[in-house]
């Protein structure tokens, strides 16, 4: 009994020490990332390359899912709204839910699973095959050359992807509502414009997407850099990237929403 409780305390201590160590490592990593960010902007083509991989290559999935989400919103929203005789407000419903919540959140989740996991896999594999060590031995900091461009590529891509997602969603809602169901086009757009405020709704949505971009990119590069250099370690790191990103997005979304829209 005594021995068991001692070993429990010891395990608790070990996990606390381990946690603090990891926290310190992550902090150091973040500081280095910021210190070396200047280099990734001086050599812009490295960052542009990463915008291509995380932004341009995510474009298709973002456009298609945005369109479908908007179409579903159009169908469901109209179904509910017309019970109260306010089918005209469909535009408001679609636009508000997309700009405030669905745009940044769903685009963020898609971004994490499409681009975040790829970044983790790439950095993890470079670590496993000693490419990062080789770079370090050539007196080139892997954080400056590999990590920082990927981080900034993600941070820059994310707001654009979220905006494209929301736009496609509005188009999808318009397609279903106006073209197929026959809501009056004038009412659709004018009600939308009357209800959606630039600062309050659109800008806050953009701010959310920037925050999510930073969170997902940071998680993705850190998990890749920190992974155990084995095949299993890389696959675990990818899983962790997707899971932690999803949790981070949803938690941050709650926090941001409660600050932005509590009026």
């Amino acid at each position: 009994m005594m021995g068991r409780s001692v070993s429990f305390v010891r395990r608790l201590g070990a996990s606390v020490v381990d946690g603090i160590w990891r926290l310190g490592f992550a902090t150091r990593f973040m500081v280095l990332l910021l210190v070396y960010s200047g280099q990734s902007f001086r050599r812009l083509h490295l960052t542009i390359r990463e915008i291509y991989f995380s932004g341009v290559l995510s474009l298709l999935i973002i456009i298609v899912s945005g369109l479908f989400v908007g179409m579903v919103l159009g169908l469901q929203g109209y179904e509910t709204l017309q019970r109260f005789g306010s089918g005209d407000a469909l535009g408001v419903l679609v636009a508000l839910s997309l700009t405030r919540e669905l745009g940044p959140v769903v685009a963020g989740l898609l971004f994490a699973s499409r681009a975040g996991s790829a970044v983790t896999a790439e950095i993890g594999l470079m670590k496993t095959t000693e490419q990062l060590k080789a770079m370090d031995m050539m007196a080139v900091s892997p954080i400056a050359r590999v990590v920082a461009p990927r981080f900034w590529g993600g941070v820059i891509s994310m707001p654009f992807l979220a905006a494209i997602f929301s736009t496609m969603g509005v188009v999808g809602g318009w397609l279903i509502g106006v073209v197929f169901i026959g809501v009056d086009a004038g009412a659709f757009w004018s009600q939308m414009q009357a209800a959606v405020d630039f600062r309050y709704d659109v800008l806050n949505g953009v701010i959310k997407s920037v925050v999510f971009g930073v969170a997902v990119s940071l998680i993705a590069v850190f998990e890749g850099y920190d992974c155990t250099p084995t095949a299993e370690g890389v696959s675990r790191a990818i899983t962790r990237t997707v899971v932690s990103s999803a949790l981070a997005i949803l938690a941050l979304d709650f926090v941001l929403t409660s600050f932005m829209f509590r009026g």
Partner: peptide
Amino acid sequence: WVGLFVLIGAAALLFLSLRVGN
């Protein structure tokens, strides 16, 4: 491609601010 991507993104932001928002 990246230039195109940024243009599409900027167009989407413009659409959201002018057509959707007020």
